[in-house]
Amino acid sequence: MIILAATPIGNLGDATRRLVEALETVTVVAAEDTRTAARLLQALGVANRPRLVALHDHNEKERAGQLVELARERDVLVVSDAGMPTVSDPGYSLVAAAAAAGVAVTALPGPSAVLTALAVSGLPTDRFAFEGFLPRKPAERAQALSALAAEPRTLVFFEAPSRIAQTLDDMAHAFGADRAAAVCRELTKLHEQVRRGPLGELAAWAAQGVRGEIVVVVAGAAPRRVPFGDAVTQVLELTRSGERLKDAAAEVAEATGHSRRELYQAALAVKN
């Protein structure tokens, strides 16, 4: 089968027992960087020397088929440089190819920069959206942020230290300088830091220079308060397009801040 294995995002002590056991027994490891994988084996004291196969953004589509065929006969362990493969890392094309070919895929859970940053951010965690890295080109980045400005869920991004100041400044312009956020750097490492505050303040702080691996967590947009009558109209328009009244009321309630129950009852009275 294909085995996706999460690796430490900084602190080597976060390596799970299942990861170590798998590394000690498998004969093939598909790695984002074979040199990093070799260092991991050494650091964990693994005596086994499996065959290391490079699986990265530039060769994954071509190599996926080969690895799937190999996984019909033996286990193929898949690792990225840090965290869980497929999450902003190679592995998606391989899993899709394995699923299409009827080859089993499983995962060894473990460290995740996304969930670690979300947990320590101090921002709502009940609903969130992971956006990965934003586009590098300014115009494309501005467009992507503009599309997310009204997103009510907490947003999680990855960013490079060389671009973090500009990205936070762009976020302040797109989301508002007062939008709450947290910059999480060097998670699980010796110099771990979580800087919380409004986007405008964080952008000014980052302008002085920030180092290390960075995850940015941004609060979702506050519900737009619209007149109750207009909200009821929105519910009715959604039902006319085929949506159930209950679902339409819930959707509009989330977007406007009005009571779902009151919207449902008002719309039902109109329909009757």
Rank of each mutant, 00 (worst) to 15 (best):
V270N: 09
M171G: 05
N48C: 11
R185L: 12
L108Y: 01
L123S: 06
D230A: 15
A204L: 14
V114H: 01
V235C: 09
A231Q: 05
A37R: 02
P8S: 09
V114D: 00
P124V: 11
L23T: 04
A255S: 13
N11S: 13
F175Q: 01
P85S: 06
G220P: 04
L23P: 01
L238R: 15
S93T: 09
V252G: 02
A82K: 01
A82F: 05
V103K: 01
D178M: 09
E243G: 00
A100V: 13
R225E: 10
R185T: 11
A172Y: 03
E213R: 04
S93F: 15
A99M: 14
F133M: 07
F175K: 02
E192P: 04
A100S: 14
A203W: 02
L55F: 02
T167Q: 12
R225C: 05
L23D: 02
T106V: 12
L145E: 04
D126G: 12
D169Q: 13
V215Y: 01
R39Q: 14
K137R: 15
E243P: 00
K271C: 11
E32C: 07
T256D: 06
T154R: 03
R63T: 11
K189D: 05
E151I: 00
A5R: 00
R17E: 15
P90A: 11
T188V: 08
A172P: 00
D75W: 07
W205D: 09
E131K: 14
A207I: 07
K246G: 11
L238A: 13
Y264G: 07
N48R: 13
A15L: 09
T27M: 03
T125G: 13
A207P: 00
P111S: 15
R225Y: 05
P135A: 10
E140C: 06
R127N: 02
P8T: 09
A5V: 03
Q66M: 12
A221D: 10
A96T: 15
R127L: 06
V95Y: 03
A15P: 00
L199Y: 10
A119D: 05
T86W: 03
P161V: 12
R163D: 11
A249Y: 02
D57Y: 10
Y264K: 08
P223A: 14
Q234D: 15
Y264N: 07
N48Y: 12
G257Y: 07
R39L: 15
A30M: 04
E151M: 09
A139Q: 14
T188W: 03
A113P: 00
R74D: 07
E254W: 12
G65Q: 07
E243F: 14
